[in-house]
Design a protein around this nucleic acid. Structure first.
Lengths: 143, 143
DNA sequence: TATTGTTATACTCTATAACTATA
DNA sequence: TATAGTTATAGAGTATAACAATA
């Protein structure tokens, strides 16, 4: 509609690319929320499952660090996942203060499903040609 | 060390690119949270400011749709922004049920600062060469 | 003294349902 | 009857502070 001054007068490919990517990622979040709903978990629970090791137990303090949140949150989120039988608390070290958190079999299955869904490239990547995919990967790795 | 089977045996550039981008965007979220903190707003408040028009008032029902959330949430979030003098409720249509929400001067300034910070391309884009930026933009637009 | 995990508390966000005032 | 916005309620996430057990 006849853009006047200030209305993107300067064409900066970097800013434009970021603007488009921003919107595409925002769309993608809708899909992520749908996956959470489908697996009947919340975002915080998903992130905890995501940062848990598939096979090895982690001390709670490590999870708080990985999630960049307060330790008391982790207690609450783990309470809920444990109540659903997805994870369990163990005593696993010489230091009797620490509790180790590990996925149960059911938790391992759920986490696998979560990762499988999240690792699926969104359409704006999947629909690229093979050379474009390779070029994109090279660019993103260049950082 | 010494990856066996199943450990990314298949090289799919699309999945790899998505995996790298996923991690880069996760890093970027830390920056976004820092901006929210700096402006002393929450994520939900930021999203509401983001989807408000800079100059024109919006009916609350439109905001609920834009945010894809329940109308009662919007009431709560707007209450807080209004208490801080960032937005105001007006009666603006023939239909006396609808309330129009508009940014105050302070709200316009805050929103401008927010958008300015969020529109700044993250390093993984800013550090690309100009041809790469253009190529990336072309790819993202190809969807 | 410091650290690990928990509990208590308070606030925000979220959805559902009931309500009001309009239409 | 239906819609726009509010209120009440309940649950989840979040941070802070105080606490117990252990180091």
């Amino acid at each position: 509609m006849g853009a006047k001054s200030g209305d993107r007068a300067i064409h900066d490919p970097g800013r434009e690319a970021w603007s488009v990517l921003f919107r595409l990622m925002q769309d993608h979040r809708r899909l992520v929320r749908a996956v959470w709903d489908e697996l009947d978990i919340t975002g915080a629970q998903a992130e905890l499952l995501y940062c848990l090791d598939a096979k090895r137990a982690s001390p709670m303090v490590a999870l708080a660090e990985a999630l960049e949140c307060n330790a008391s949150n982790v207690t609450g989120i783990i309470d809920k996942l444990e109540a659903r039988g997805l994870i369990e608390r163990r005593q696993g070290t010489a230091d009797r203060r620490v509790k180790m958190v590990a996925l149960t079999k059911a938790g391992q299955r759920l986490r696998a499903r979560l990762l499988e869904r999240l690792s699926e490239p969104p359409r704006f990547i999947a629909s690229l040609s093979d050379p474009d995919k390779a070029a994109l990967l090279a660019m993103l790795r260049r950082t």
